[in-house]
Amino acid sequence: MVPTTYYIGLSTILFTIGTMGVLLRRNAIVMFLSIELMLNAANLAFVAFARQLASIDGQVIVFFVMTVAAAEAAVGLAIIIAVFRHRRTINTDELRLLRW
C-alpha cells in the first residue's frame, strides 16, 4: 500500500501548480481554473487523511469544499461576465481602473 505521504506529496505538487497558474497567468478564467485546481489538491489531502485515520469526517469536509467551490464558481463567473460586458477584456493586466 502506498503510504499517506505520497498522496500528500501529490497534493502538494498539484497545489503548487495551481499557485503557479494564479501568479503567472493573466486570463481571469484560467486564474479561476487554477484556483479550482488548488481546491482539488486540498480535497485529495482530506481524502488521504480520512483513509489514514479511518475517519469519515475527511470525506464530509470534501463534500463541503465541493459545495463551496460550486457557489464560488457561479458568483465568480457572473462577475467575469459582468466585467467583460463593460471592458470587453478579461486580461487582468488591463482591469486596473476602479472606475472608468
Partner: peptide, 27 residues
C-alpha cells in the same frame, strides 16, 4: 480515480457529477 482507490466511492462519484460534470461545464 485516486479517490476510488482511497475507499471514497461516494466522494469520487460526487467529484465527477458535481465538479467535472456541472462546475466545469459552466466554465
Amino acid at each position: 480515480v485516486v479517490f476510488v482507490f482511497l475507499d471514497a466511492d461516494f466522494v469520487a462519484a460526487l467529484q465527477v457529477v458535481v465538479y467535472a460534470g456541472a462546475i466545469l461545464v459552466v466554465f
